[in-house]
Design a protein around this nucleic acid. Structure first.
Lengths: 257, 257
DNA sequence: CCATATATTTCGGCG
DNA sequence: CGCCGAAGTATATGG
Protein backbone atom coordinates (compact mmCIF):
# COMPACT_ATOMS: atom_id res chain seq x y z
CA UNK A 1 0.00 0.00 0.00
CA UNK A 2 1.19 3.49 -0.81
CA UNK A 3 1.17 6.03 1.93
CA UNK A 4 2.95 9.09 3.16
CA UNK A 5 2.94 10.70 6.57
CA UNK A 6 4.84 13.71 7.89
CA UNK A 7 4.95 15.32 11.30
CA UNK A 8 4.84 19.06 11.86
CA UNK A 9 4.99 20.02 8.20
CA UNK A 10 4.90 23.72 7.44
CA UNK A 11 1.98 25.15 5.49
CA UNK A 12 3.69 24.79 2.16
CA UNK A 13 4.49 21.15 2.80
CA UNK A 14 1.04 20.39 4.21
CA UNK A 15 -0.44 21.94 1.13
CA UNK A 16 1.73 19.73 -1.09
CA UNK A 17 0.86 16.55 0.79
CA UNK A 18 -2.86 17.24 0.70
CA UNK A 19 -2.84 18.02 -2.99
CA UNK A 20 -0.72 14.98 -3.72
CA UNK A 21 -3.21 12.83 -1.85
CA UNK A 22 -6.20 14.39 -3.56
CA UNK A 23 -4.70 14.05 -7.02
CA UNK A 24 -3.85 10.41 -6.36
CA UNK A 25 -7.39 9.72 -5.20
CA UNK A 26 -5.99 8.66 -1.87
CA UNK A 27 -7.52 9.09 1.55
CA UNK A 28 -6.13 12.24 3.13
CA UNK A 29 -5.81 12.42 6.92
CA UNK A 30 -4.67 15.59 8.61
CA UNK A 31 -4.40 16.33 12.30
CA UNK A 32 -4.34 20.05 12.78
CA UNK A 33 -5.49 23.08 14.69
CA UNK A 34 -8.24 24.56 12.59
CA UNK A 35 -11.46 26.55 12.44
CA UNK A 36 -14.47 25.30 10.53
CA UNK A 37 -17.37 26.97 8.76
CA UNK A 38 -20.33 25.46 7.00
CA UNK A 39 -23.12 26.96 4.98
CA UNK A 40 -25.76 25.08 3.07
CA UNK A 41 -28.59 22.98 4.45
CA UNK A 42 -27.85 24.75 7.73
CA UNK A 43 -25.12 27.06 8.85
CA UNK A 44 -22.41 26.55 11.44
CA UNK A 45 -19.13 27.82 12.75
CA UNK A 46 -16.54 26.31 15.00
CA UNK A 47 -13.65 28.18 16.61
CA UNK A 48 -10.04 27.06 16.65
CA UNK A 49 -9.17 23.65 18.07
CA UNK A 50 -7.23 20.48 17.38
CA UNK A 51 -9.10 18.07 15.12
CA UNK A 52 -8.70 15.26 12.66
CA UNK A 53 -9.69 16.05 9.10
CA UNK A 54 -10.26 13.28 6.59
CA UNK A 55 -11.03 13.45 2.89
CA UNK A 56 -11.84 10.16 1.22
CA UNK A 57 -11.35 9.24 -2.42
CA UNK A 58 -15.08 9.57 -3.12
CA UNK A 59 -15.22 13.14 -1.88
CA UNK A 60 -16.42 12.35 1.62
CA UNK A 61 -15.04 15.05 3.88
CA UNK A 62 -15.22 15.09 7.64
CA UNK A 63 -13.90 16.94 10.67
CA UNK A 64 -13.67 14.98 13.92
CA UNK A 65 -13.36 16.46 17.38
CA UNK A 66 -12.00 14.49 20.32
CA UNK A 67 -15.41 13.21 21.27
CA UNK A 68 -18.50 11.75 19.64
CA UNK A 69 -18.87 9.17 16.97
CA UNK A 70 -20.14 11.64 14.43
CA UNK A 71 -17.99 14.25 12.76
CA UNK A 72 -18.65 17.79 13.99
CA UNK A 73 -18.76 18.95 10.37
CA UNK A 74 -18.74 17.06 7.12
CA UNK A 75 -19.51 16.97 3.45
CA UNK A 76 -21.09 13.91 1.82
CA UNK A 77 -19.54 11.68 -0.87
CA UNK A 78 -19.07 13.24 -4.32
CA UNK A 79 -18.26 16.59 -2.83
CA UNK A 80 -15.76 18.71 -4.69
CA UNK A 81 -12.74 18.98 -2.40
CA UNK A 82 -9.75 21.21 -2.82
CA UNK A 83 -7.00 22.97 -0.89
CA UNK A 84 -5.67 26.48 -1.32
CA UNK A 85 -2.98 28.53 0.37
CA UNK A 86 -4.28 31.91 1.44
CA UNK A 87 -3.15 34.58 3.87
CA UNK A 88 -0.65 32.20 5.45
CA UNK A 89 -3.28 29.55 6.10
CA UNK A 90 -4.38 26.43 4.31
CA UNK A 91 -8.02 26.40 3.40
CA UNK A 92 -9.71 23.11 2.67
CA UNK A 93 -13.04 23.34 0.93
CA UNK A 94 -15.65 20.78 0.07
CA UNK A 95 -18.77 21.77 -1.81
CA UNK A 96 -21.79 20.45 -3.66
CA UNK A 97 -24.18 21.97 -6.13
CA UNK A 98 -27.31 20.17 -5.07
CA UNK A 99 -28.10 20.89 -2.40
CA UNK A 100 -25.87 23.97 -2.48
CA UNK A 101 -23.52 23.72 0.44
CA UNK A 102 -19.94 24.35 1.34
CA UNK A 103 -17.61 23.28 4.10
CA UNK A 104 -14.48 25.25 4.83
CA UNK A 105 -11.63 24.19 7.10
CA UNK A 106 -8.98 26.79 7.84
CA UNK A 107 -5.81 25.09 9.03
CA UNK A 108 -3.66 27.15 11.37
CA UNK A 109 -1.12 24.55 12.43
CA UNK A 110 -0.56 21.05 11.13
CA UNK A 111 0.62 18.27 13.43
CA UNK A 112 0.38 15.36 11.04
CA UNK A 113 -0.36 15.41 7.31
CA UNK A 114 -0.78 12.09 5.57
CA UNK A 115 -2.47 10.17 2.83
CA UNK A 116 -2.78 6.53 1.93
CA UNK A 117 -3.96 4.62 -1.09
CA UNK A 118 -5.32 1.41 0.37
CA UNK A 119 -6.87 -1.59 -1.30
CA UNK A 120 -10.24 -2.68 -0.04
CA UNK A 121 -12.63 -4.63 -2.20
CA UNK A 122 -14.54 -6.20 0.65
CA UNK A 123 -18.21 -5.52 1.24
CA UNK A 124 -19.73 -5.69 4.65
CA UNK A 125 -22.01 -8.61 5.36
CA UNK A 126 -24.68 -7.52 7.75
CA UNK A 127 -27.62 -9.32 9.24
CA UNK A 128 -30.20 -8.71 11.89
CA UNK A 129 -32.55 -6.09 10.59
CA UNK A 130 -36.08 -5.65 9.38
CA UNK A 131 -35.65 -7.07 5.91
CA UNK A 132 -34.15 -10.23 7.38
CA UNK A 133 -37.18 -10.56 9.61
CA UNK A 134 -39.53 -10.32 6.65
CA UNK A 135 -37.55 -12.94 4.73
CA UNK A 136 -37.67 -15.22 7.74
CA UNK A 137 -41.41 -14.76 8.19
CA UNK A 138 -42.11 -15.63 4.56
CA UNK A 139 -39.82 -18.64 4.81
CA UNK A 140 -41.15 -19.98 8.11
CA UNK A 141 -44.50 -18.25 8.78
CA UNK A 142 -45.25 -20.42 11.78
CA UNK A 143 -42.80 -18.39 13.86
CA UNK A 144 -45.56 -15.78 13.97
CA UNK A 145 -48.11 -18.36 15.00
CA UNK A 146 -49.22 -21.79 13.90
CA UNK A 147 -51.19 -21.56 10.68
CA UNK A 148 -50.23 -18.00 9.77
CA UNK A 149 -49.84 -17.51 6.03
CA UNK A 150 -48.32 -14.29 4.67
CA UNK A 151 -49.65 -13.14 1.33
CA UNK A 152 -48.26 -9.72 0.49
CA UNK A 153 -45.30 -7.64 1.51
CA UNK A 154 -45.38 -3.86 1.34
CA UNK A 155 -49.09 -3.72 0.78
CA UNK A 156 -50.02 -0.10 -0.02
CA UNK A 157 -52.55 1.85 2.05
CA UNK A 158 -53.42 5.52 2.13
CA UNK A 159 -51.14 6.04 5.12
CA UNK A 160 -48.19 3.98 3.92
CA UNK A 161 -47.07 0.44 3.24
CA UNK A 162 -48.05 -2.47 5.42
CA UNK A 163 -44.95 -4.54 6.14
CA UNK A 164 -46.62 -7.94 5.86
CA UNK A 165 -50.22 -8.83 5.12
CA UNK A 166 -51.57 -12.34 5.61
CA UNK A 167 -54.23 -14.57 7.11
CA UNK A 168 -54.38 -16.68 10.23
CA UNK A 169 -55.52 -20.28 10.38
CA UNK A 170 -59.11 -19.11 10.80
CA UNK A 171 -59.00 -16.99 7.71
CA UNK A 172 -58.84 -13.66 9.51
CA UNK A 173 -56.85 -10.96 7.77
CA UNK A 174 -53.68 -10.15 9.74
CA UNK A 175 -51.58 -7.03 9.47
CA UNK A 176 -47.99 -7.31 10.69
CA UNK A 177 -45.90 -4.33 11.64
CA UNK A 178 -42.21 -5.28 11.85
CA UNK A 179 -39.53 -3.62 13.92
CA UNK A 180 -36.02 -4.99 14.15
CA UNK A 181 -35.43 -3.09 17.41
CA UNK A 182 -37.48 -2.48 20.53
CA UNK A 183 -40.73 -0.95 19.39
CA UNK A 184 -42.12 2.29 20.85
CA UNK A 185 -45.51 3.94 20.76
CA UNK A 186 -45.00 5.19 17.22
CA UNK A 187 -44.87 1.64 15.92
CA UNK A 188 -48.18 0.93 17.65
CA UNK A 189 -49.77 4.08 16.26
CA UNK A 190 -48.57 3.20 12.80
CA UNK A 191 -50.08 -0.26 13.04
CA UNK A 192 -53.32 1.26 14.29
CA UNK A 193 -53.44 3.57 11.29
CA UNK A 194 -52.99 0.67 8.90
CA UNK A 195 -55.86 -1.14 10.57
CA UNK A 196 -58.04 1.94 10.36
CA UNK A 197 -57.47 1.81 6.63
CA UNK A 198 -59.11 -1.60 6.72
CA UNK A 199 -62.10 -0.36 8.65
CA UNK A 200 -64.08 -0.15 5.42
CA UNK A 201 -63.94 -3.90 5.37
CA UNK A 202 -66.68 -5.54 7.34
CA UNK A 203 -64.47 -8.46 8.26
CA UNK A 204 -62.42 -8.59 11.43
CA UNK A 205 -58.77 -7.68 11.00
CA UNK A 206 -56.01 -8.53 13.44
CA UNK A 207 -52.98 -6.31 13.96
CA UNK A 208 -49.76 -7.76 15.30
CA UNK A 209 -46.66 -5.81 16.21
CA UNK A 210 -43.64 -8.02 15.61
CA UNK A 211 -40.45 -6.90 17.36
CA UNK A 212 -37.82 -8.13 19.82
CA UNK A 213 -39.58 -6.17 22.57
CA UNK A 214 -41.81 -3.15 23.22
CA UNK A 215 -41.64 -0.19 25.56
CA UNK A 216 -44.11 -0.14 28.46
CA UNK A 217 -46.04 2.71 26.86
CA UNK A 218 -46.29 0.78 23.63
CA UNK A 219 -47.56 -2.32 25.43
CA UNK A 220 -50.30 -0.28 27.11
CA UNK A 221 -51.27 1.33 23.85
CA UNK A 222 -51.45 -2.06 22.14
CA UNK A 223 -53.85 -3.20 24.81
CA UNK A 224 -56.00 -0.11 24.42
CA UNK A 225 -56.19 -0.61 20.67
CA UNK A 226 -56.87 -4.35 21.01
CA UNK A 227 -53.72 -5.08 19.06
CA UNK A 228 -51.32 -7.94 19.61
CA UNK A 229 -47.60 -8.29 20.16
CA UNK A 230 -45.41 -11.12 18.93
CA UNK A 231 -41.87 -11.11 20.34
CA UNK A 232 -39.42 -11.99 17.60
CA UNK A 233 -35.71 -11.30 17.16
CA UNK A 234 -34.37 -10.55 13.69
CA UNK A 235 -32.37 -13.50 12.37
CA UNK A 236 -28.65 -13.22 12.85
CA UNK A 237 -27.33 -15.81 10.42
CA UNK A 238 -25.14 -14.99 7.50
CA UNK A 239 -25.54 -16.43 4.02
CA UNK A 240 -25.04 -20.20 4.10
CA UNK A 241 -21.90 -20.28 1.97
CA UNK A 242 -20.09 -17.84 4.17
CA UNK A 243 -18.34 -19.14 7.19
CA UNK A 244 -16.36 -17.25 9.76
CA UNK A 245 -13.37 -19.09 11.11
CA UNK A 246 -12.76 -16.78 14.01
CA UNK A 247 -14.29 -17.69 17.29
CA UNK A 248 -15.55 -14.14 17.68
CA UNK A 249 -19.23 -14.76 17.31
CA UNK A 250 -19.39 -17.84 19.49
CA UNK A 251 -17.61 -15.91 22.19
CA UNK A 252 -20.08 -13.09 21.90
CA UNK A 253 -22.84 -15.59 22.26
CA UNK A 254 -21.35 -16.49 25.61
CA UNK A 255 -21.31 -12.93 26.87
CA UNK A 256 -25.00 -12.59 26.12
CA UNK A 257 -26.19 -15.54 28.13
CA UNK B 1 -0.12 19.38 21.30
CA UNK B 2 1.28 15.96 22.09
CA UNK B 3 1.29 13.41 19.35
CA UNK B 4 3.17 10.43 18.03
CA UNK B 5 3.14 8.83 14.61
CA UNK B 6 5.12 5.92 13.24
CA UNK B 7 5.20 4.29 9.83
CA UNK B 8 5.26 0.55 9.27
CA UNK B 9 5.56 -0.38 12.93
CA UNK B 10 5.69 -4.08 13.69
CA UNK B 11 2.91 -5.66 15.73
CA UNK B 12 4.71 -5.21 19.01
CA UNK B 13 5.31 -1.53 18.33
CA UNK B 14 1.79 -0.94 17.04
CA UNK B 15 0.50 -2.55 20.18
CA UNK B 16 2.63 -0.23 22.31
CA UNK B 17 1.54 2.88 20.46
CA UNK B 18 -2.13 2.03 20.68
CA UNK B 19 -1.95 1.25 24.37
CA UNK B 20 0.04 4.40 25.01
CA UNK B 21 -2.63 6.41 23.24
CA UNK B 22 -5.48 4.71 25.05
CA UNK B 23 -3.87 5.13 28.47
CA UNK B 24 -3.21 8.80 27.77
CA UNK B 25 -6.83 9.35 26.75
CA UNK B 26 -5.59 10.45 23.37
CA UNK B 27 -7.22 9.94 20.00
CA UNK B 28 -5.73 6.85 18.36
CA UNK B 29 -5.53 6.71 14.58
CA UNK B 30 -4.28 3.57 12.84
CA UNK B 31 -4.11 2.85 9.13
CA UNK B 32 -3.88 -0.88 8.66
CA UNK B 33 -4.96 -3.96 6.80
CA UNK B 34 -7.56 -5.56 8.99
CA UNK B 35 -10.68 -7.71 9.25
CA UNK B 36 -13.67 -6.59 11.26
CA UNK B 37 -16.43 -8.39 13.14
CA UNK B 38 -19.39 -6.98 14.97
CA UNK B 39 -22.06 -8.59 17.09
CA UNK B 40 -24.70 -6.81 19.11
CA UNK B 41 -27.64 -4.81 17.86
CA UNK B 42 -26.92 -6.51 14.55
CA UNK B 43 -24.17 -8.76 13.33
CA UNK B 44 -21.57 -8.21 10.63
CA UNK B 45 -18.30 -9.35 9.21
CA UNK B 46 -15.85 -7.73 6.87
CA UNK B 47 -12.94 -9.45 5.18
CA UNK B 48 -9.38 -8.15 5.00
CA UNK B 49 -8.72 -4.71 3.54
CA UNK B 50 -6.90 -1.44 4.17
CA UNK B 51 -8.81 0.88 6.49
CA UNK B 52 -8.46 3.70 8.94
CA UNK B 53 -9.29 2.87 12.53
CA UNK B 54 -9.91 5.62 15.05
CA UNK B 55 -10.56 5.41 18.78
CA UNK B 56 -11.48 8.67 20.47
CA UNK B 57 -10.90 9.61 24.08
CA UNK B 58 -14.58 9.11 24.92
CA UNK B 59 -14.59 5.52 23.69
CA UNK B 60 -15.95 6.24 20.22
CA UNK B 61 -14.51 3.60 17.93
CA UNK B 62 -14.81 3.55 14.16
CA UNK B 63 -13.50 1.78 11.10
CA UNK B 64 -13.46 3.74 7.84
CA UNK B 65 -13.21 2.28 4.37
CA UNK B 66 -12.03 4.30 1.38
CA UNK B 67 -15.52 5.43 0.56
CA UNK B 68 -18.61 6.73 2.30
CA UNK B 69 -19.04 9.30 4.98
CA UNK B 70 -20.11 6.75 7.53
CA UNK B 71 -17.78 4.25 9.13
CA UNK B 72 -18.30 0.68 7.93
CA UNK B 73 -18.24 -0.49 11.54
CA UNK B 74 -18.21 1.39 14.80
CA UNK B 75 -18.91 1.46 18.47
CA UNK B 76 -20.55 4.45 20.19
CA UNK B 77 -19.02 6.74 22.83
CA UNK B 78 -18.35 5.24 26.27
CA UNK B 79 -17.42 1.93 24.75
CA UNK B 80 -14.76 -0.06 26.52
CA UNK B 81 -11.82 -0.18 24.13
CA UNK B 82 -8.70 -2.28 24.45
CA UNK B 83 -5.93 -3.90 22.42
CA UNK B 84 -4.42 -7.34 22.80
CA UNK B 85 -1.69 -9.26 21.02
CA UNK B 86 -2.87 -12.69 19.99
CA UNK B 87 -1.71 -15.32 17.53
CA UNK B 88 0.61 -12.84 15.86
CA UNK B 89 -2.16 -10.31 15.30
CA UNK B 90 -3.32 -7.25 17.12
CA UNK B 91 -6.93 -7.39 18.18
CA UNK B 92 -8.75 -4.17 18.97
CA UNK B 93 -12.00 -4.57 20.82
CA UNK B 94 -14.71 -2.12 21.76
CA UNK B 95 -17.69 -3.26 23.76
CA UNK B 96 -20.71 -2.07 25.71
CA UNK B 97 -22.94 -3.68 28.27
CA UNK B 98 -26.19 -2.03 27.32
CA UNK B 99 -27.05 -2.78 24.69
CA UNK B 100 -24.69 -5.76 24.67
CA UNK B 101 -22.44 -5.41 21.67
CA UNK B 102 -18.87 -5.89 20.64
CA UNK B 103 -16.68 -4.71 17.80
CA UNK B 104 -13.49 -6.54 16.97
CA UNK B 105 -10.77 -5.35 14.60
CA UNK B 106 -8.03 -7.82 13.77
CA UNK B 107 -4.98 -5.98 12.47
CA UNK B 108 -2.80 -7.94 10.07
CA UNK B 109 -0.42 -5.22 8.92
CA UNK B 110 -0.01 -1.69 10.19
CA UNK B 111 0.96 1.13 7.85
CA UNK B 112 0.66 4.04 10.25
CA UNK B 113 0.03 3.98 13.99
CA UNK B 114 -0.48 7.28 15.75
CA UNK B 115 -2.18 9.11 18.55
CA UNK B 116 -2.63 12.73 19.46
CA UNK B 117 -3.80 14.57 22.51
CA UNK B 118 -5.38 17.69 21.09
CA UNK B 119 -7.02 20.61 22.84
CA UNK B 120 -10.47 21.54 21.68
CA UNK B 121 -12.89 23.34 23.95
CA UNK B 122 -14.95 24.84 21.17
CA UNK B 123 -18.59 23.98 20.71
CA UNK B 124 -20.25 24.07 17.34
CA UNK B 125 -22.64 26.92 16.76
CA UNK B 126 -25.38 25.75 14.48
CA UNK B 127 -28.35 27.57 13.08
CA UNK B 128 -31.04 26.86 10.57
CA UNK B 129 -33.05 24.09 12.13
CA UNK B 130 -36.52 23.53 13.51
CA UNK B 131 -35.96 24.97 16.95
CA UNK B 132 -34.61 28.16 15.43
CA UNK B 133 -37.80 28.44 13.41
CA UNK B 134 -39.90 28.09 16.52
CA UNK B 135 -37.87 30.73 18.34
CA UNK B 136 -38.27 33.07 15.40
CA UNK B 137 -42.00 32.51 15.21
CA UNK B 138 -42.46 33.31 18.89
CA UNK B 139 -40.28 36.37 18.54
CA UNK B 140 -41.88 37.76 15.40
CA UNK B 141 -45.20 35.92 14.91
CA UNK B 142 -46.22 38.13 12.02
CA UNK B 143 -43.88 36.22 9.72
CA UNK B 144 -46.56 33.52 9.76
CA UNK B 145 -49.24 36.05 8.97
CA UNK B 146 -50.35 39.43 10.23
CA UNK B 147 -52.06 39.09 13.58
CA UNK B 148 -50.96 35.55 14.33
CA UNK B 149 -50.29 34.99 18.03
CA UNK B 150 -48.60 31.78 19.20
CA UNK B 151 -49.63 30.52 22.61
CA UNK B 152 -48.10 27.10 23.25
CA UNK B 153 -45.20 25.09 21.98
CA UNK B 154 -45.16 21.30 22.06
CA UNK B 155 -48.84 21.07 22.91
CA UNK B 156 -49.63 17.43 23.71
CA UNK B 157 -52.27 15.47 21.79
CA UNK B 158 -53.08 11.79 21.70
CA UNK B 159 -51.01 11.36 18.55
CA UNK B 160 -48.02 13.48 19.54
CA UNK B 161 -46.93 17.03 20.22
CA UNK B 162 -48.10 19.98 18.19
CA UNK B 163 -45.10 22.13 17.33
CA UNK B 164 -46.83 25.49 17.78
CA UNK B 165 -50.38 26.28 18.79
CA UNK B 166 -51.85 29.77 18.46
CA UNK B 167 -54.65 31.96 17.19
CA UNK B 168 -55.08 34.12 14.14
CA UNK B 169 -56.32 37.71 14.15
CA UNK B 170 -59.91 36.46 13.98
CA UNK B 171 -59.50 34.27 17.02
CA UNK B 172 -59.40 30.99 15.13
CA UNK B 173 -57.23 28.31 16.66
CA UNK B 174 -54.19 27.62 14.48
CA UNK B 175 -52.00 24.53 14.51
CA UNK B 176 -48.52 24.92 13.06
CA UNK B 177 -46.42 22.01 11.89
CA UNK B 178 -42.80 23.06 11.45
CA UNK B 179 -40.22 21.52 9.17
CA UNK B 180 -36.77 22.99 8.70
CA UNK B 181 -36.38 21.15 5.37
CA UNK B 182 -38.61 20.53 2.39
CA UNK B 183 -41.76 18.91 3.73
CA UNK B 184 -43.19 15.69 2.32
CA UNK B 185 -46.54 13.98 2.61
CA UNK B 186 -45.72 12.65 6.05
CA UNK B 187 -45.58 16.16 7.44
CA UNK B 188 -49.02 16.82 5.98
CA UNK B 189 -50.44 13.61 7.39
CA UNK B 190 -49.03 14.45 10.78
CA UNK B 191 -50.61 17.88 10.71
CA UNK B 192 -53.91 16.33 9.66
CA UNK B 193 -53.78 13.95 12.61
CA UNK B 194 -53.22 16.80 15.02
CA UNK B 195 -56.23 18.59 13.60
CA UNK B 196 -58.34 15.49 13.90
CA UNK B 197 -57.51 15.52 17.58
CA UNK B 198 -59.20 18.91 17.70
CA UNK B 199 -62.30 17.63 15.97
CA UNK B 200 -64.08 17.37 19.33
CA UNK B 201 -63.99 21.12 19.43
CA UNK B 202 -66.89 22.70 17.69
CA UNK B 203 -64.81 25.67 16.63
CA UNK B 204 -62.99 25.90 13.33
CA UNK B 205 -59.29 25.04 13.51
CA UNK B 206 -56.74 26.02 10.92
CA UNK B 207 -53.69 23.87 10.11
CA UNK B 208 -50.63 25.42 8.59
CA UNK B 209 -47.54 23.57 7.42
CA UNK B 210 -44.55 25.85 7.84
CA UNK B 211 -41.46 24.84 5.86
CA UNK B 212 -39.05 26.18 3.23
CA UNK B 213 -40.95 24.22 0.57
CA UNK B 214 -43.16 21.18 0.03
CA UNK B 215 -43.08 18.25 -2.36
CA UNK B 216 -45.73 18.19 -5.08
CA UNK B 217 -47.48 15.27 -3.40
CA UNK B 218 -47.56 17.16 -0.14
CA UNK B 219 -49.03 20.25 -1.79
CA UNK B 220 -51.83 18.17 -3.30
CA UNK B 221 -52.54 16.49 -0.01
CA UNK B 222 -52.66 19.85 1.76
CA UNK B 223 -55.28 20.99 -0.71
CA UNK B 224 -57.31 17.83 -0.22
CA UNK B 225 -57.26 18.26 3.54
CA UNK B 226 -58.02 22.00 3.33
CA UNK B 227 -54.76 22.74 5.07
CA UNK B 228 -52.48 25.66 4.40
CA UNK B 229 -48.83 26.11 3.59
CA UNK B 230 -46.64 28.97 4.72
CA UNK B 231 -43.23 29.07 3.05
CA UNK B 232 -40.61 29.96 5.63
CA UNK B 233 -36.89 29.36 5.78
CA UNK B 234 -35.30 28.59 9.12
CA UNK B 235 -33.32 31.60 10.36
CA UNK B 236 -29.64 31.43 9.61
CA UNK B 237 -28.30 34.06 11.96
CA UNK B 238 -25.99 33.26 14.81
CA UNK B 239 -26.39 34.63 18.31
CA UNK B 240 -26.05 38.41 18.33
CA UNK B 241 -22.83 38.56 20.33
CA UNK B 242 -21.04 36.21 18.01
CA UNK B 243 -19.45 37.57 14.90
CA UNK B 244 -17.50 35.79 12.26
CA UNK B 245 -14.63 37.76 10.81
CA UNK B 246 -14.07 35.46 7.87
CA UNK B 247 -15.73 36.34 4.62
CA UNK B 248 -16.86 32.74 4.24
CA UNK B 249 -20.55 33.23 4.75
CA UNK B 250 -20.91 36.31 2.62
CA UNK B 251 -19.16 34.48 -0.19
CA UNK B 252 -21.49 31.56 0.17
CA UNK B 253 -24.39 33.95 -0.01
CA UNK B 254 -23.08 34.98 -3.41
CA UNK B 255 -23.03 31.45 -4.74
CA UNK B 256 -26.64 30.98 -3.82
CA UNK B 257 -28.06 33.96 -5.68
C1' DC C 1 -32.92 13.50 -9.95
C1' DC C 2 -36.75 13.41 -6.42
C1' DA C 3 -39.28 10.88 -2.87
C1' DT C 4 -39.55 6.99 0.61
C1' DA C 5 -38.05 4.01 4.38
C1' DT C 6 -34.51 2.06 7.28
C1' DA C 7 -30.55 2.41 10.50
C1' DT C 8 -25.79 -1.32 14.98
C1' DT C 9 -28.92 5.40 13.13
C1' DT C 10 -26.43 9.30 16.68
C1' DC C 11 -27.36 12.86 19.78
C1' DG C 12 -29.52 15.69 23.12
C1' DG C 13 -33.13 16.34 26.51
C1' DC C 14 -36.23 14.93 29.93
C1' DG C 15 -38.16 11.82 33.38
C1' DC D 1 -30.78 4.40 32.32
C1' DG D 2 -34.67 4.34 29.05
C1' DC D 3 -37.75 6.87 26.03
C1' DC D 4 -38.75 10.34 22.58
C1' DG D 5 -37.86 13.35 18.69
C1' DA D 6 -34.83 15.82 15.45
C1' DA D 7 -30.94 15.63 12.22
C1' DG D 8 -26.83 19.69 7.53
C1' DT D 9 -29.09 12.86 9.47
C1' DA D 10 -26.60 8.88 5.59
C1' DT D 11 -27.68 5.23 2.64
C1' DA D 12 -30.18 2.13 -0.47
C1' DT D 13 -33.99 1.69 -3.50
C1' DG D 14 -37.75 2.76 -6.58
C1' DG D 15 -40.08 6.03 -9.75
Amino acid sequence: MKFLSEENPDHQRTFEIINEGLSKKAVVVVVACCTVNYDGRARSKLGAGDRMVMIKSDGSFMVHQNINLEPVNWQPPKSNCSAVLKDGNIILEGSRRSPPERLQVVIHKTYVASYYNGKDNKDLELTGYEENMREMIFKTPDIIEEGFRPSTKEYPTSTGFIDVLGKDKNGNVVVLELKSRRAGINAVKQLKRYLDDFSDHKEFVRGILVAPSVTDDAAELLEGFKLEFKPLDPPREFGADKNLTLDFFSKTQDTKT
